[in-house]
Design a protein around this nucleic acid. Sequence first.
DNA 1: ATGTGTGAATCGATTCACAGCA
DNA 2: TGCTGTGAATCGATTCACACAT
Lengths: 237, 237
Amino acid sequence: MTTHDPSGPAAGPETRGRAIPPASVARLTIYLRALNSLLAEGVERVSSEELAEAAGVKSAMLRKDLSYLGSYGTRGVGYEVQLLTRTIAARLGLTQEWRVAIVGAGNLGRALAGYSGFTTRGFEVAAIFDADPAVIGSEVGGLKVSAVMDLEKVLARTGVNMVVLAVPARSAQELCDELVAAGVRSILSFAPVVLQVPPGVEVRKVDMATELQILAYHAQRAQESEQSSQSRARSAR
Amino acid sequence: MTTHDPSGPAAGPETRGRAIPPASVARLTIYLRALNSLLAEGVERVSSEELAEAAGVKSAMLRKDLSYLGSYGTRGVGYEVQLLTRTIAARLGLTQEWRVAIVGAGNLGRALAGYSGFTTRGFEVAAIFDADPAVIGSEVGGLKVSAVMDLEKVLARTGVNMVVLAVPARSAQELCDELVAAGVRSILSFAPVVLQVPPGVEVRKVDMATELQILAYHAQRAQESEQSSQSRARSAR
DNA sequence: ATGTGTGAATCGATTCACAGCA
DNA sequence: TGCTGTGAATCGATTCACACAT
């Protein structure tokens, strides 16, 4: 699904901290969100039970996830909200600011440029690109749209280190190649295609069509078992 | 992450076909996309090796995934593209048309309403809702925006059986409750919150902030191991 | 000869259950 | 006493490797 680097070429024993299992990393972001809410409400301590409830997981799993960070709770008491928040944020790499470029200023790209969720926590949208001359130079979300032809130059100037790819499927692989050539190593793609990238480049995918199809699968099964229980009921009388 | 129904209350031995493991269901949608490309190119047969390559997985995994559907390949030959395409589509529930409502006509909701990826295969956007009186009644993607107050009525009239929730985090749970009350059992949420739903309702989440944070985690690790290998090189001379 | 279908082996993720500490 | 931290047990997902069909 994503390209990772189990213990990359340059990863020696010096690498700070063991790697956290991928499934745990994904959940840590959820805990972080819940903790931020608690922080906003002025709550100072949580138990694993309470936090797990808010995150929709079992408390044993939450404790195991947190144990990969070290030991930050107090037995018999719980976790300090502030300390835990900072610890997770630091471990996820959210103490540094990430500069994001959006490639593709169509419907989706423009919606993303205006999405406060990015800016809210440590992700600064620093550039937006399009290939269409009619769009280049126009303003979107307070940024002037740059030409994809100037990709490398503008990325370097704006200090971008992460890219959101919001272009049609047919141009996604080509642009992805250009991004990689320009030195980008973290890509979040909304294009419904499997992107081929060299090792060392991390790609994550958000795929609405896939998600709807998965929903369809479950909905169909629910229909079927409903029908079969109805026919069972019918033949039983 | 999602609500499933391991072998639901009504699921008896009559349920057509065994359940497909969740991880396989997700990949079947990817295979389907690759197969549709092959179909468009006029290719008639594929081997598991070729299709796996296109989907970015190992061939053994592809064969195991397909084996949950039954036996549709020919030993020594491969799979017929057309037959396999139809088989997967049928099993995923894509032979019936799904009618989708978009709840939330903000930036994201409007972008989604105009997204061809929905309409392209079996998902018809049948309604779009918003709570803002200034937006209600305006036209988005060829549809008049309905009031969320009329949710139940409009959903029933338009025959919607699947909802995309594109509203701010703070109103997501409340709207989700209303959707469930109105009989919706399949929800794709873009809101960055954990939605609580009763059993029998399937929620899937698309979460851009989480994805970016996961990228940040890996990018930070890559930075760290780069730095440690540099300092190792320095101290070695 | 070739490539599918699948048991057996492996690997990772989740849950259990309890020892240990405040 | 109460709740964390974690080995051990379980469960699911992936990979291996080969028997079998064409």
